[in-house]
Amino acid sequence: MVFKQLVTGVMLGLAMMPAQAALNVFACEPEWADLTRILVPDAEIRTATTAWQDPHYIEARPSLIAAMGRADIAVCTGASLESGWLPALISRASNRGVQPGKPGLFFAAEQVELHQPHDHVDRSMGDVHPEGDPHIHLDPDRLPDIVEALADRLTELAPDRENAIRLRQRQWHVGWKLNTARWREAATSLEGMPIVVQHSTFGYLLRWLGVEAAIDLEPKPGLPPSAAHLGKVLSDPALDEVKVVLIASYQNDRPAQWLSEKAGLPVEVLPGTVTEEPKTNSLAELISHIIERLQQYNDKAAPESADHG
């Protein structure tokens, strides 16, 4: 009798477990944590990097191995962005659910077509990824496909949550479409605006907006700005038209500040991804914020050029 009660108890316990156990998520970058949280709000999410860290160069440190070991799913960018640390994490965590080819390893870059895939890549070109530019997380058009694929994947791992995940995905999609329409409108004023960038961190969004990344402070992708290259930038005639120098919060701002002093240009430092601070604490907010900041420099410049004319 006691045995029977015990068995019933254990069975009940097991039956209740899936409902109680929160989905354990390892997000390589904050943008994927943000999107996963939208689909599964009660997920336990460990984010490996912040907006103040260069996602190319994180180390496979012990705390991340422990988090990877517990994860039901790892949500990452892919396209070799994390190739310096993610393979080591996966190998050391020995989590059989999170392995290449398993549903527990989700790469956003595999869900969409990337900009600038290369047939031929060698290291003399800098840190160029053969798959294409991996910084897709700010692209208004590519994100819905990524979120849909992520919802599919989460549903595969937690079938009991399918309805809730699908519902939230549709809600997100509606909101995103409204935002996209708003951004599209804002983009008309930004079209053709030339700016200086450092790396392709904001590349997809700038291209979508029609903002022209006229000059890159990096001599080659992934190489820090050198004195020789900055000298060349300073004498580049395209610099005269440039409105602002835009860099990401994880980058050293000294090269940008140097150029700012020499060329009299404003410098804008923006988080390259979602943060915990107001105005940038979700992908939609972040994109709105970046557009707002860019507009400010565009508007400022407009009356000036009118004066000259």
Partner: peptide, 11 residues
């Protein structure tokens, strides 16, 4: 023991 400001070991 490793230290990197903000965990940004690139810089």
């Amino acid at each position: 023991w490793k230290w990197a400001p903000g965990g940004n070991n690139r810089q």
